[in-house]
Simulated scan of single mutants.
Amino acid sequence: MAGPQPLMLHATSVAVDGRAAIIRGPSGSGKSALALQMIALGAELIADDQTCIHREGNDLIVDAPDTIRGRLEARGVGILNAPAAGPARAVLVVDLPPYGSTPNAPRLPPDETEDLLGVALPLVRGVDAGHFPAALHLYLKYGRSD
């Protein structure tokens, strides 16, 4: 019996030490901007705006379509060339709300997961706060204490 078919998501993905975050949200929500900030902190670009996802055993692997590999949109600047990391294992889904607004976000959010291709990944909801890119970078590098 064949496994789930690969997915193409309207999402940006970045990785730290081979551990990737899938950043989702509607157009204009700040996916590329968040990726730029994380890259400035040392993350690597996997894909901007379109992320390919496939399952290998119990892992989800993210990669870029060849047509956009190593390209990142910076609003007001244009399409930038960026070093492209190879495929990476997804460990986190980040959902950004429209236009970066998250009123009354909890300091310690409840544990949530998102199921993609039959694999449950932790889900973090984006907050409009200066620390958010650094917090995600640390999450990818070291995980979260539960």
Rank of each mutant, 00 (worst) to 15 (best):
G57C: 01
A84S: 13
L136K: 12
S27F: 09
T67K: 06
V124L: 14
A120Y: 12
T12G: 09
L7S: 05
R69C: 03
D59M: 00
P97D: 06
V91N: 00
E44N: 12
R24G: 10
L96V: 05
P87G: 07
R71P: 01
A134Y: 10
G118T: 10
G70S: 04
D66I: 08
Y142A: 12
R144V: 15
D115T: 15
Q37V: 02
V16D: 02
V16W: 02
A88F: 02
L92A: 06
A135H: 10
P98G: 13
A82H: 05
V77R: 10
D17C: 12
G126W: 07
A74P: 05
P109N: 14
D59N: 01
A82G: 02
N104K: 13
R107M: 12
V124C: 12
V77K: 06
Q5K: 08
M8I: 13
A33E: 13
G3F: 03
I53C: 00
G70H: 10
S29P: 10
I68V: 14
T12K: 07
G118Y: 03
R69Y: 03
D111R: 14
A21Y: 11
L140P: 07
E44C: 10
I68Q: 04
I39E: 10
E44F: 01
A134Q: 11
R55L: 02
L123A: 08
M38D: 01
Q37P: 05
E56I: 01
P65C: 02
D95G: 01
G28L: 07
G78N: 11
A135P: 07
V119G: 00
G25Y: 06
P83G: 11
A33V: 06
S29W: 06
P122M: 08
P98D: 15
P122R: 12
K141S: 13
R71E: 03
G100R: 01
V14M: 05
R75E: 12
R89H: 03
L9A: 10
S29R: 05
K31F: 06
I53H: 00
A88R: 01
P83H: 11
A84F: 09
S13W: 08
Y139L: 11
I79K: 02
M38E: 03
I53E: 00
L72E: 04
L138A: 12
R107D: 06
F132C: 08
V16E: 02
H137S: 06
L123I: 08
D48A: 05
L138M: 15
N104D: 13
L117G: 03
A82W: 03
V127P: 08
P65H: 07
P6E: 07
R107K: 14
Y142C: 13
A84V: 05
